[in-house]
């Protein structure tokens, strides 16, 4: 139904790669400026949602099949949880990052990086899943 909106399609094709890169920037620059896993996940999800709005949900499902987003949803939560378990195995408390590296500060850096990655993956997968379910309903009616 969107086949005639040439301007929208071309502009969004130009915009989607910068949006994805910006999401990654927000993800990994969250330690120094505003940003972090929650925002990055939402922006990453928004890029796919924009694509789905313009080119149809079926096209997105070719790139990201539903089982991939569902898997990512679980992977994100597990990344977070297992990071805590790793601290436990290395002799600290649950979610204690000081023991992840020889230097406590480096350990904190690794811990925060992993945890934020887990948050980002979960949020992005959740947003894409929710949108796909809503949009998939529209197709049936």
């Amino acid at each position: 139904m969107m086949h005639r909106k040439v301007v929208l399609r071309v502009v969004s094709k130009f915009l989607i790669p910068p949006i994805l890169v910006f999401a990654l920037y927000v993800q990994f620059h969250g330690d120094f400026g505003p940003g972090g896993g929650f925002q990055a996940g939402v922006i990453f999800g928004a890029a796919f949602i924009l694509y789905a709005i313009l080119f149809g949900v079926e096209t997105v499902k070719k790139v990201l099949p539903p089982w991939v987003t569902r898997l990512l949803l679980v992977v994100g939560v597990l990344t977070y949880g297992l990071c805590g378990v790793a601290g436990l195995l290395l002799g600290g408390n649950y979610l204690d990052y000081n023991v992840l590296a020889h230097d406590p500060l480096h350990g904190q850096h690794y811990g925060i990086l992993i945890v934020e990655a887990g948050v980002g993956i979960t949020v992005a997968a959740a947003m894409i899943t929710i949108f796909n379910v809503f949009a998939g309903q529209t197709g049936e009616d």
């Binding site: 330690d31 400026g33 896993g37 994100g76 949880g81 925060i112 945890v115 887990g118």
Partner: peptide
């Protein structure tokens, strides 16, 4: 060791809270 206090509180001091949110 992070300049952004919000991130360090979110992911380190209060990581149980954030785990719950996730």
């Amino acid at each position: 060791g992070m300049p952004n206090v919000v991130t360090s509180v979110l992911a380190s001091y209060r990581s149980f809270d954030t785990l719950g949110e996730v």
